[in-house]
Amino acid sequence: MSKLWFDVAHLLAGGMLVLSFALLYQDRIAAVINVFALQAVALSLSVAWQALVQGAPHLMVTAAIALIVKGFVIPTALHHIIRRMQIHREVEEVIGSGLTMLTGLGLVALSILLVQPVGEVSIYVREDLAFALAVILLGLLMMITRRNAVTQVVGFMSLENGLVLAATGAKGMPLVVEISVAFSILIAFIVFGIFVFRIRERFDTVDVRALDRFRGERRDVS
């Protein structure tokens, strides 16, 4: 197989990583959702490319699921939610965005370091795995640096994007697994959605600090 194929694959995966950083950096909720949709599109392109390269048509289904569910359905729903809650204009306070970006860089370095020994098996798989691991770790980082429930949900789904990338890049994932993962994500999304609405109903805000206050915890805890 020519090297060009892998370069394209790496370009798409790298695009996802860049979008992960963009997610970390955004402080408007609407923009966060848009970037997430973009990342999902990049994911579906990447998966579709893998389907072409590996000659595995079932990966096309995976790509389609990613594009439709994560690229359109979930972002639209999220936009709907934040508009109904009137928080679409809100600027979310991100803790030390510079520090977060630096930590993110560290995590990317860590993932490259981690997949080093995989290179002995196949150098192409190694790069893909490094990208996927970095996307996962950045998703986690996003979940712990955000205070808004909606952006935490987005962080979680971006993490899942990384999982799908890892699975398809390496060897191709059975369709059943992909469908079940997609379903579980959808269910998680519904649960999160209900959760967010409940918080909103109770506390008039989706800032999770309200929950801490409700538990009677120390005020200084962020």
Binding site: V208, L211, D212, V221
Partner: peptide, 13 residues
Amino acid sequence: QFLTIRRYLTLVV
């Protein structure tokens, strides 16, 4: 036992 959700998540990460 009395941390916030986000702190627990941070601990896990």
